[in-house]
Simulated assay, not measured.
Amino acid sequence: MILYVLFVCSFAVATAEFVLVGLLPQVAADLGVSVPAAGQLVTAYMIVVTVGGPVAAVLTRRLPRRELLAATMALATVSAVASAMATSYPMLLTARLGSALAQALFMAVASQVAMAAVPPERQTVAVARVFGGFALATVLGLPVGSLIGEAYGWPVTFVVVAGMAAVGLLGVIVFCPRIAAPPPAGVRDSVGALTRPAILAGLGVTLLALTGFVAAFTYVAPMLRDVTGLSPGWVSIGLVGYGLGTIAGNLLAGRVRPDSITRRLPLAVGALALILLAQPLLLPVAPLALVGLALLGAATFVVVPLVQTWLMGQVDAATTGLVAAVNISVAGAAGALGAALGGAVLTVGLGPAWIGPVAAVSVLAATAVAAGIARASAPTTGRTSAALLRQ
Score class of each variant (00 low, 15 high):
232 P>N: 07
41 L>P: 07
377 S>W: 00
183 P>M: 13
130 V>I: 15
138 T>Y: 05
134 F>H: 02
266 P>S: 07
59 L>V: 15
235 V>F: 01
90 P>H: 07
14 A>C: 10
83 S>N: 01
383 R>I: 01
93 L>V: 03
166 A>M: 13
289 A>W: 01
129 R>T: 14
150 E>T: 09
311 L>Q: 04
23 L>F: 09
84 A>S: 09
100 A>T: 04
180 A>T: 12
307 V>N: 03
125 V>C: 08
301 F>R: 00
235 V>T: 07
334 A>I: 04
147 L>W: 09
69 L>P: 10
82 A>K: 02
225 R>M: 12
34 S>I: 08
20 L>Y: 05
108 A>C: 11
62 R>Y: 01
66 R>S: 14
119 P>Y: 08
313 G>I: 14
151 A>S: 10
50 T>K: 08
34 S>Q: 09
80 A>T: 02
300 T>K: 09
281 L>M: 14
63 L>V: 06
44 A>M: 07
230 L>C: 08
112 Q>A: 15
113 V>M: 11
343 G>C: 13
27 V>N: 08
146 S>N: 10
282 L>C: 03
156 V>S: 06
20 L>F: 06
48 V>A: 14
185 A>S: 15
300 T>G: 15
146 S>E: 12
360 A>T: 07
217 F>G: 07
58 V>E: 05
70 A>L: 13
292 G>N: 10
360 A>D: 04
342 G>A: 13
62 R>C: 04
67 E>P: 01
36 P>I: 12
290 L>Y: 01
57 A>D: 03
37 A>M: 11
113 V>P: 02
140 L>E: 01
250 N>H: 12
5 V>Q: 03
108 A>M: 11
277 L>T: 01
97 L>N: 04
255 R>C: 12
387 A>N: 03
161 V>L: 06
366 A>V: 05
76 A>L: 01
80 A>S: 15
107 M>H: 12
64 P>M: 02
256 V>Q: 11
234 W>C: 03
354 W>A: 09
117 A>W: 00
6 L>V: 10
38 A>R: 07
296 L>Q: 14
330 V>E: 01
181 A>P: 06
39 G>C: 08
